[in-house]
């Protein structure tokens, strides 16, 4: 896990643009106030309660691959923003913007996703400010 953490941090430093954003989980220490943007290849997309999960493989400048797991809200919450059961398939190249967890591990809550065709899913998709439930 420590190796994975080190890789995640190095990838974050090399690839990610960080920007201030509103806090989620008010009062919680789970999610950071910043956003990260990672580009990677979809490993899986789980359309499920309590949260949907997008797992992507991100290759760092050193060639090492780090697996990021990003959560979105439940299907009924993200459906209006255009997310569907078949929005992602393994092998898709996507760019994900998310609020990372504060413990430095490669987990986060999705703010938006740019699909292979350039279209963007976001808004109500995951990091819905001030209206996020962990489960």
């Amino acid at each position: 896990m420590r190796n994975r953490l080190v890789k995640a941090v190095s990838v974050a430093l090399l690839l990610l643009a960080s920007a201030p954003a509103g806090a989620h989980h008010t009062g919680s220490t789970l999610l950071s106030d910043t956003t990260v943007t990672v580009k990677g290849v979809v490993k899986s997309w789980l359309w499920s309660n309590p949260h949907c999960l997008l797992t992507i493989e991100v290759k760092g400048a050193d060639g090492q691959v780090v697996e990021w797991v990003m959560e979105a809200q439940a299907p009924n919450s993200i459906y209006p923003a255009g997310y569907r059961n078949n929005s992602f398939k393994p092998g898709d190249e996507v760019t994900v913007t998310a609020n990372p967890v504060t413990n430095g591990r490669p987990y986060g809550r999705i703010e938006s996703v740019v699909l292979p065709n350039g279209s963007k899913l976001g808004g109500e998709g995951g990091g819905r400010r001030g209206n996020a439930a962990a489960q």
């Binding site: 789980l46 959560e71 009924n76």
Partner: peptide
Amino acid sequence: DVLTRYCSPYEIEAYNKAYGDGASG
């Protein structure tokens, strides 16, 4: 035909295994 948000122990366990536990440190 409403997309119902069911609570499923199986799905909760899968979520915690894949995300919740790790995200919690």
